[in-house]
Amino acid sequence: MSKKEYSKEMLLHMYEDMLRIRKFETKLTECFMKGMLAGNIHTCIGQEAAAVGASKALEKRDFIASTHRGHGHCIAKGAKTDKMMAELFGKVTGYCRGKGGSMHVADISLGILGANGIVGAGIPIATGSGLTSKIRNTDEVTLAFFGDSASNHGTFHESINMAAAWKLPVVYLCENNGYGVSVDINTVTNTDNIAVRAKAYDIPGKTVDGNDVLAVYEAVKEAVEYAREGNGPSIVECKTYRMRGHYEGDPAEYRSKEVTEEWKKKDPIDRFRTHLLTLGMEAEELDAIEEAMDKEIEAATEFATESPYPDASEVTLDVYASDNERSVIR
């Protein structure tokens, strides 16, 4: 963990958010197994430090583009768990009125440009957002979350090349959990680290321990400041591990149980709790935060289950642009 000094408030907020994400997704897995959710879910259990560390390095006015494994990104950026839960339950009180579901949560007011079911699709969206900020001469920074396998898509190279050439204010953050579905990234990539590809575009690239929330925060903070000052994009790679399968119900037999057990010992929440205790914080204080998160997630689940489904009359709402919106587009 970092030796830099941070306020107690900030450290506890990081701990709270990581617990909030973990509790949220743990409850989701329970609800899914009971058949309470439509469609499937992809959890980021084990990757919470990357989401929280990166988001804490951003300001409210900044933007993120997320992935199919995006619950943690959205919550870390400020999304409320009750509206998140309602969205995943397909209820009208959700962020997208129940129409987006797990892979399409969005809220522009929070800077969440949207999760995305297409691998790597957030990378060009973030690049476009960065171009918008540059054209408008504002100082927002956009951060694109993506997985290791997305780095082998053409949009990764095309987008970063454009951002580098035009010095766009974008941070490209790779959550390298080692697998693209069942494919070991080391069998399809000729480098140990994804961040070394930054050399091809003459931009900064850094690989950090993705299970160390402070290491992620410091690396992303540096990249955000670099971008905000007009220097262009960076690549930050977070080495991490998803503790569950690619999707809920995936037995993950393609992974070694021994390796998974080793990664469990590096659990980002357990590690951070230990760090906070070494700083002199009381176990009772940390336990109280966990209890509060349990209550919040139970309340969020109750809110979602009691909320109504969208009325059938809303089937085309938010699908087609209104006359006023079309006139603006023209």
Rank of each mutant, 00 (worst) to 15 (best):
I108E: 12
T81Y: 01
G78T: 00
D62W: 15
A51F: 11
I64Q: 05
R97A: 05
G122C: 09
G117R: 06
H104C: 01
A65K: 08
K134E: 00
E87N: 09
L131S: 04
G117E: 05
C96F: 01
D62I: 08
L113Q: 03
H73W: 10
M103C: 07
T127H: 11
A57F: 01
A51D: 13
G117W: 03
G114K: 03
A49S: 11
K80Q: 13
E48W: 00
H73L: 04
M85C: 07
H68K: 12
K134W: 02
G120S: 10
H104V: 02
G122A: 12
I108D: 11
H71N: 15
A126R: 00
L113F: 04
L113C: 06
G78L: 01
A50C: 15
A76M: 05
R61C: 15
F63I: 14
K99V: 05
I118Q: 08
I112M: 12
S66W: 13
E87P: 09
A57E: 05
T127K: 02
K83A: 14
G122M: 07
H104L: 03
D107M: 03
D62M: 13
A86T: 14
A79L: 13
L131A: 12
G120N: 07
V105T: 03
T127I: 05
K60F: 15
G111I: 01
M84H: 04
G120E: 08
A121K: 01
E87G: 08
I112C: 11
E48V: 00
I75T: 14
A57Q: 07
S109V: 12
K99E: 04
A86P: 06
T81N: 09
S133C: 06
G90N: 15
T93W: 10
A126E: 10
T132N: 13
A54W: 01
A86W: 03
I108V: 11
E87L: 09
I108Y: 13
G53E: 03
H71M: 14
A57Y: 00
G130E: 05
I123C: 11
H71Q: 15
S55I: 13
G72C: 01
G120A: 12
I123M: 09
L110H: 12
K99R: 07
G111A: 04
G128S: 08
G94F: 06
D62G: 06
G114C: 09
L58I: 12
G122E: 11
H104Q: 00
H68M: 02
D107S: 02
S129W: 15
T81Q: 03
M103A: 07
K77D: 10
A65V: 14
C74K: 05
F89H: 13
G130R: 01
G117A: 09
E48I: 00
K83L: 13
G94Q: 07
I75C: 02
A49W: 11
T127Q: 09
G111N: 03
G114P: 09
F89L: 05
D82S: 10
S129V: 15
L88K: 01
G78I: 00
A57H: 03
A126N: 08
A65H: 06
A115F: 09
H71K: 13
